[in-house]
Design a binder for these strands. Structure first.
Lengths: 342, 342
DNA sequence: TCCAGGGATGGTAGCGCTACCATGACGTAG
DNA sequence: CTACGTCATGGTAGCGCTACCATCCCTGGA
């Protein structure tokens, strides 16, 4: 006869406290919580009352251990401060805040190795679903995702070969649309400025290149890139570099809006007339683009919606519903503004 | 004789698989992982080899259940997209990425009730530490924090009565410094523009008011606020409202940099000369402030460092070290720029 | 009247790990 | 040589919950 380990939990009520108080078996309490339909209304009421009185909250760790399935969504993004991913993450959190699911957020810092490490750590947690940014996982990561035993949603991009599901849009098409817009507006020596050239940026650049080549305007010297993290100050600097390299530049497609804003400010500072002497197009359409002076043309992407949809698809898959389509393209919209209204 | 529940985990290796392979007891494997010093070097080597071969990763749920302590930092912030909190969160993630701790992030949406709900949910998880934004918790939240049985760090602000520890700075002093700077620069009819007036914004406003009253310049009509979420477009709108109400305005202290940027753009649009006709001061010193044209005076705050310090203090407390000081004031710096260089 | 079938409820045995204590080997003091 | 501590290691019994099966009761058809 050993005394029970002195409530290491610190005295929080457990499911059997609730069961005792309600005069039922522990398993019935468990069921009342998870499958209320299978418990008679009377017992359900008693149990609810006991839960309220005791302030019982189920222990997610015990639950995960017993059911071999944690109520956790694993989410992997390359950056927490980049507005783009912050919006996706916000959409995910908002969609999940009602239900029982928690979010386990991992920051890969744009590193494939770090992504592998985080997936390795997520594994034993047995998440209910995994949401990962991008479609360029390493082989190891892909295998970890495939063997995770849970729905997987790749977000931000669409591509031909989903691990499971995808929500995003075509960055290549976005880059092409932005560039074509500049060409149609009459710009000719159009530069590309891009920081932190991750795979999505690479594809936007490919879209730029396709459009420029098609118009017979392509010149490699028009391209300015850096592996550094994107920022407004960096946008300004890169624009100055681009101009130094190519003084005849008359337009720029910026890899994102931060860069575009940096370009705009430098134009002000150097008294370069926008849109007359220089056309500017950004990417993502942060809300400041519409307010900037002059307002900046940008490619609007649906980040928040991507977050919401990814959760919706994952939840459907958890519920056993076959998705009508495994790859959802949410598209983008080019929003023409003053910065290209020559 | 019942057959074991058919490996619900899906075949992941467990600690006893490792123990068997290494020819030791399960508990020794557990110790080798958590207190390597207490296991002989030879066994440690064998165990590490077995772990490597099997690809064993400990199950955090089982660990948390058995030890009544999860390797989780609970983090509560009011917003995920606001750059300010994103930076704090980034500091937290970066400081924690080496160690065994995971982060459980909660978004309170600036709601005290939501904060209570999230703390309620964190409770049974038995986190290793809690980091919460702000110092204005509800009574219920405060009690939940006090009874959490783990180190608690309140971040972003300092105040007189910490639940446990605090890292931040004085928003009141920051607001006052910004306003005094405008007064010293010769501005007189200085407005305050603030969106989403959370407690920190309120204290910046109080600092503004104190400075204005001291200088004999205070007038309630100079204040323009809204409960709406802050954004650049909103900054522009509010500035127009403020001007309509008070056409003689010659300066504005903006509750944050988004608002300040909106004001700057509207000045361009309305051909109001900055800094001659209008002085502008922001708050937080986002990196775009230094690049804006004209560059914008702002109050630099140390968000990333706040995140790092909060983790450092919590880790020290977990390790049983008494902190030399429970309240750490990281201060702020007023960065004068062109927007107030009359 | 009896029995099959289905719904509500409960008991038992784990999930994978660690706290707690026991054990045995060794060293040191007396 | 004995007594006793110390160190490395292991066994056992849970942590709080749920999967799986057993049991019980009620209903309805033969």
């Amino acid at each position: 006869m050993t005394k029970p380990r002195s409530r290491r939990g610190g005295g929080r009520p457990t499911i059997s406290d609730v069961a005792r108080k309600a005069g039922v078996g522990a398993i019935t309490v468990s069921r009342a919580l998870r499958e209320p339909g299978r418990v008679s209304e009377e017992l359900r009421r008693q149990i609810q009352a006991a839960i309220g009185e005791l302030g019982y909250v189920p222990d997610p760790n015990a639950r995960a251990l017993a059911s071999a399935r944690a109520e956790v969504f694993g989410v992997l993004v390359p950056s927490l401060t980049n507005n783009v991913f912050a919006e996706v993450v916000r959409g995910i959190y908002d969609s999940l805040s009602d239900g029982p699911f928690r979010v386990q957020l991992g920051n890969t810092h744009y590193s494939g190795l770090e992504e592998e490490r985080l997936l390795q750590v997520f594994g034993p947690q047995r998440p209910a679903a995994l949401i990962v940014a991008g479609i360029d996982q390493t082989q190891t990561s892909r295998r970890l995702l495939e063997t995770s035993g849970c729905p997987v949603v790749q977000v931000m991009e669409t591509g031909p070969d989903p691990v499971d599901m995808m929500v995003g849009f075509s960055h290549l098409d976005g880059g092409r649309a932005a560039t074509e817009h500049l060409i149609e507006a009459g710009y000719r020596r159009i530069g590309f400025i891009g920081a932190r050239m991750d795979p999505r940026s690479q594809r936007r650049l490919a879209g730029y290149r396709a459009a420029m080549e098609k118009a017979g305007l392509f010149d490699p010297r028009l391209i300015t890139t850096t592996p550094l993290l994107s920022s407004v100050p960096l946008g300004r600097e890169m624009f100055r570099d681009a101009l130094a390299k190519m003084p005849a530049l008359d337009g720029v497609f910026c890899n994102n809006d931060d860069i575009a804003l940096g370009v705009l400010f430098e134009c002000h500072r150097a008294a370069i007339a926008v849109p007359q002497t220089m056309g500017i197009v950004g990417f993502n359409d942060l809300d400041m683009m519409q307010v900037a002076f002059p307002s900046i043309t940008s490619v609007r992407t649906h980040r928040y919606e991507i977050g919401r949809r990814s959760v919706g698809m994952a939840l459907a898959a958890i519920a056993g519903e076959r998705p009508e389509q495994r790859v959802v393209d949410l598209g983008f919209e080019l929003i023409p503004r003053e910065s290209t209204a020559r």
